[in-house]
Design a protein around this nucleic acid. Sequence first.
DNA 1: GCGTGATTGTTTTTT
DNA 2: ACAATCACGC
Length: 1029
Amino acid sequence: MEPQGSRHPGLRHALHRRRLRLHPTAPRHARRHRRALPPVALRLRRAGRALHPPQPPGAPRRPLARRRLRGDQEAHRHHRRRGLRALHQRAGHARPLRRPSRRLGLPHLGAGTAPQEGAARPLPRGPRRGALRHLQLLGGSRRPGPGAAAGHHRQAALRRPQRPGHRRPHRPAHRAGNQALRGAPGARRGAGAEAGLRAAHPHPQGRRHRGHPRPPHRHARLRQDPHRIAPARVPALLPRRGARLLDHGRRPLRPRRSPLRRSPLETPLIDRDALARELNPPQLEAALRTDGPLLVFAGAGSGKTRVITFRVAHILDEKNIPPWRILAVTFTNKAAQEMRERLHRIVGHDRARGLWISTFHALGARLLRRFHERTGLRQDFAIYDDGDQRSVMNRVFDELKIDEKFLPVRTALGAIDRAKQEVLEPDDLMARAVTLHDKQIARAWEAYEKHLAKNGAVDFGDLLSRLTRLVERDASVREELQEQFQYLLVDEFQDTNNAQYRMLRAMVNEHRNLCVVGDDDQAIYRWRGADVRNIQYFKRDFPDALVVKLEQNYRSTQRILRAANAVISKAQQREGKTLFTRNGEGAPIELLPCEDEREEARHIAHGVKSTLARGVPAREIAVFYRIHAQSRPLEDAMRAANIPYMIYGGMRFYERAEVKDILAYLRMVLNPNDDVSLLRVVNTPARKIGKTTLDRVTAHATARQTSIWKLLATGDLPDDVGAAARKALTGFYRLVGEIRREAAAMLDRPAEVGSLVFQKTGYARMLEDNKDVENETRHENIQELLGSMHEYAQEADEPTLSGYLERVTLNEETPEGEDSPKVSLMTVHSAKGLEFRAVFIAAMEDGMFPYKGTELGSDPEEMEEERRLAYVAITRAREQLSVSFTRFRQIFGQTRINPPSRFLLEIPPDVLSGKVPRRHFGEGSTPSRESSNTWGSGGGGGGGGYRVERDPVPSRAREPEAPVVNDGPVLVRDNPAVGWQRGMRVRHMKFGTGTVKTVLTGAELKVEVYFPNLGATKTLLAEYLQLLG
DNA sequence: GCGTGATTGTTTTTT
DNA sequence: ACAATCACGC
Ligand SMILES: Nc1ncnc2c1ncn2[C@@H]1O[C@H](COP(=O)(O)OP(=O)(O)OP(=O)(O)O)[C@@H](O)[C@H]1O
């Protein structure tokens, strides 16, 4: 297998690079340059959006009149008025997807047979769709894409191996849930994982399992079942949510993947019987009680999302409510995507079309565009990301002469963001400002808003606060929305903030059909302003709400659940809930003690390999870490082990300078008054427009209360701008003007505009002139960007440049999915809501996970959130969970020595494969090199533990650059304080007593010590410290 | 105006 | 470790 990896949105994808033949840089070669400029052979593809659901093959595009759904009529009028301008969000449009008609290797789904929400099914395999699409592209029904990018795309597609269609067993492959591993679900029912749980339910045997009666003891099942379904034959064994990740969110666009998609008519309606089959009694109640307020309050894996999806299905199918009257929202893109996907699966693409399923932010963007004239925004307003915000704020600070030392820009922006979460305005902040600091913030905010307005932009926070304010204050908007949205549903409600909750409350109409679903134990976004108390507020505000509790977990093994429950039970404030499972005991949770993070990564890679060897498909395996910075060694190890993996988040593709440059030009195409974008690119490529000139022009623009562009247009430049600079500025003005004129006719083809920009601005030339590897990479990245635009244009209903830019800033762009399954690497935060058969959690150490809250005097709430995060992490696992921790960890340029996570110590020993050592060095025992892998009690313990053979060659971490790691034990032996570690009490002759915060290694052993009486942390040589107690 | 080398922070998690 | 910013010299 080819090593491959990808990062999304900033994808690293070596294999793909090769396929694309964009350039021959070998991954290894490329990697060398990653530091400076990660080589990104990003293959972004426009992901499926429920907002723009596809149409089945051959389905005629619905007539405009019908597609133009109520709520968007107004927007549509605008659209007409303004031509093709920036109208990209409308319900219910679909571009016909060209794909082969499929035959289904499925038993007939009888009427009334509810499709399994989470269940994947065997699918017929036609030619690869991606390839097909491209072939058709070549066929020329579409205009040729932009230059090289499109060409590469096409060629790449052509070159990609075309696997022959696989034969699928003629039975619905249920998801390989922990239960039901043998009893194939009833064909009749098309049921999923829970099939095995229902004694009453018939169990027609799958071919493979014929003759294996369901074992009487569920217990034994997990461990015993040797009959894992071979992954290769059952691609349908997708992780429920992981599927989205790995299948790259295009599922909704891929009807052929769904067995339900033979034709819309064959997607069975979700009638009461179907519901009753698919849901347990409390779930059923929650799904059926469509009217009035409802709170589903339940632990992880209890089927909350399932309730939402079936409830929507029920509203659609039984109550015949048109889809555009149903709004389902959550906080993260992933959760939204998940709902969307599941809904499409159970209800079919056709009936799901037009549902409003989105994140709060995307909803904000969509509605603000629809009502833009009520808020004084342009319809195609830009959305500013962090960097843009910072650059606006820098300018404001210059203007107001605020000293960054006194008030860091990030502090100001943070305060503003928080204020926006509370739907406040600058005046409110000013009114409650006490200190000069507060006042400066309020002043800065005011100026900041002026700049946004002038630039025709909003920031992330605005998407929420402006919409909330609008709905709360503008009666006509409110009425319109209340009229439109008859049913509101919120997933992950515990992670909503004030603005979001208020938005919901304002949008709900007199019927109050608001269903919220959440789990206080999974509240992990407090740091972003989310407030779990919204659950309480909901009960207060809707006292007659039906509260449904779900207590059965359908996801995890007994052991995993016990571990999770143990960790969360120690949480300070929680409502408390029961959560049990009828699933099997499962394998012990495997402990992987490691020397350092490289070894840890190798162990994990090894573990992943064995898991794969056991037949668990790659897409059912995930590695979690607390922070992105941990991903690198993991990636390296995966690559070294030839494990296909995919990584999420981290350094984003769209944050790369060259990409942002092009995007900035594109924003200028839409709105040249966008000073932020202008300043970004005015001298890129270099045009001899220097800082001095720009400072002057900027100041002038501020003084004139106008945009830089307008100054250029009128020639109203400050006197002290010299002739050369003037000329350069005029040149830039002309250039952008020309581009804009040319682009005007192709705003519906973003990639062409992108290509135009790339060429005309001289950006392409700049990269070609100096052909070093970095520039090649940049070039490649831009090609990828163009490729993603092209994809977007192909798959969006109504592609617009503004629509593309919005997708990018809202992070909705998802990575291209090769069909090859991949192991997922992601942060725990991104994992929320997903589930995997096998999960590896890295760095379970105090100081890494929990990452925060371990220091003296830190907010206890931080630790609480870490705990909940640990709960989330553990509960993602269905069958197998491995946790690792290291003795030495190099992170942020330091080597730290952390004890194993306190959360591990709280897990009952009987669910673990071994003992968790309390600290790294046992009393008196100086770990020697050869025993370094067996400190603690090693991973031997219960079944499933494996030992990773020691690398005969010393790992790089132990080579010269980190001699202390090598000699660690020796140094430690030299010092009476055996084994320094965090949390130790020490005395220093000057500073008194303190607590060890961090153990650093270098030429000498240093530690960071916090001295409470000083209120400060000092870095000291360990030899000056005396160990207490 | 531009390129360089030094310095200085900064590194959680997401929209 | 690393990026972004700054100071300096051409
Ligand atoms: N009644 C049921 N019968 C069979 N399977 C079920 C049932 N309810 C839920 N499941 C399955 O259990 C798993 C967890 O469900 P779901 O994701 O909806 O839970 P959740 O409460 O949203 O979890 P989380 O809070 O962790 O996001 C899914 O695979 C789902 O299909």
